[in-house]
Amino acid sequence: MSRHNFKIVLLGEVTKGRVGKTSLTLRFVKNSFDDHQQSTIQATYLQKELRIGDKTVTISVWDTAGQERFHALGPIYYRNADGALLVYDVTDHDTFIRAKNWVKELRKVVGDDITITIAGNKSDMKNRQVSDEEVAEYAKSVGAVHLHTSAKANRNVDEAFLDLTKRILEKKSSAPSRTELLGKQNSGIIIDNTERRVTRTESRMYGKNGGISVADEPKTTQEQKQCCG
């Protein structure tokens, strides 16, 4: 069974109010909402393990600061991100405009490697300012998926994260994995005439120093054949 670790950044504007990034994370990871939580909690970095088919995926959800004053520093957050959940408030059109800008920035900094989901949060509220057609058309044009979510009503929260994770997994599966690449580089590491797994130390070294190994001199030709096939 293969294991994966994906980094997902949560992006959303903080202007007049809040779009609900942190609430979405909390609902997804801890299945709780502000109204029901027991005490003060920090929800800046949360991890959750998911089973998708025969694969175990650990997703690390990175909450980001959405204030205007930190916009210029955004790329520090996106670095090495596998996916992004762009959150806007369906009752505030400005937040959707800002979400569009996030997409532009993400594509500029990370390129097409990043998988994007756009979440229209607070969908339980009636006074919507963003039309479904507008957002659906936009999402399609940037290769993203759009979902209406509500952390409060627990609507489409799990679906948003699961769909994003599945799409990241699909994208990663189609591209050669880092492990596969490492495996090619590390073939031939033999110690004590027994093939060993590549250790963290070794994996750290390979690619920097090339193959280095210390090997026993084989006792007999027959023995070597038996061990190494």
Partner: peptide, 23 residues
Amino acid sequence: VQHYKDNPDIKGEKLVIGADDML
């Protein structure tokens, strides 16, 4: 948490600290 525990008269014992607050 400790601050609001020490000052129970102040409302704020159930807060969520997101990145917007933490940074």
